[in-house]
């Protein structure tokens, strides 16, 4: 097997005295979609946030164990700004900046030192095309991002994440606030993006996980109970707890 893009080994996360993640071990192969599933409160979103060190911002949070990006520890010497450039995040609710569509996308590249406006313009167009949004917004780039529909705003956020050329894309329930048509567009987009990016998507929608992912990790009570190819895990899971969750004989 090729080297994993991200390898997580014996990862623990504490919020004060609460242990939110327990000895999580899972690896993510490059240019594949891995879905993280599990019931509410199982730690899946917390886990996603450890992968770009978003939990660092919370007081009293503490992490032990290893997270390796291309074999390099992200919790040691790696610069956090650089990490977050390499590992982008898309959230559950679309969160565009209160600025123009153009500036939303241009924000990241400019922060990372891109000065020439012609270059920035190129990045904006490329990112919006990759996020399958360009044709819908190309004539209204100076309008506020708030003019867009929810589904469009979410694709804008994906375009914004892509603008800094990340290697990994983390998506935290990216379609849960969207209607079925907008959801289908996001799922289609995920399939296109996996050609170039390693994607980790948290979802509580098992059918969505079945549709978009090649691999699945099942989380329960802060543990990664089981991970493997989606078709194996969804037809013949190895762990009784996975079985009970998937068949709804649970809780």
């Amino acid at each position: 097997m090729t080297q994993p893009k991200i390898e997580v080994d014996q990862l623990n996360l504490y919020y004060g005295p609460t242990r939110a993640l327990k000895d999580v071990t899972i690896s993510f192969p490059p240019t594949m979609v891995t879905a993280i599933v599990g019931p509410s409160g199982c730690g899946k979103s917390s886990f996603l946030r450890t992968l770009d060190r978003m939990n660092d911002l919370l007081p009293n949070s503490r992490v032990t164990g290893h997270v390796l990006l291309d074999g390099e520890e992200i919790y040691e010497s790696m610069d956090v700004a650089l990490l977050r450039k390499r590992v982008g995040m898309v959230f559950q609710k679309p969160n565009p900046f209160p600025r123009s569509i153009y500036d939303n996308i241009a924000f990241g590249p400019r922060i990372h030192g891109m000065k020439k406006e012609s270059q920035v313009r190129e990045v904006v167009e490329r990112s919006l095309r990759q996020a399958a949004l360009w044709d819908e917004v190309k004539d209204m780039l100076t309008k506020s991002a708030y003019n867009l529909s929810g589904g469009q705003q979410q694709r804008l956020c994906i375009a914004r994440a892509l603008a800094v050329e990340p290697e990994v894309l983390l998506m935290d329930e990216p379609a849960s606030a969207l209607d079925p048509i907008a959801t289908a567009r996001i799922e289609e987009l995920v399939s296109e993006l996996k050609e170039r990016y390693t994607i980790i998507i948290v979802t509580h929608n098992l059918q969505q996980a079945a549709r978009v992912s090649e691999r699945v990790g099942f989380f329960l009570h802060g543990e990664c109970v089981e991970s493997g190819p989606t078709k194996d895990l969804f037809t013949a899971p190895k762990d009784k707890r996975t079985e009970d969750y998937l068949t709804g004989r649970f809780g």
Partner: peptide
């Protein structure tokens, strides 16, 4: 019902 795992089998 979109069954999974043993229900699907």
């Amino acid at each position: 019902q979109q069954p999974l795992a043993s229900d699907l089998r």
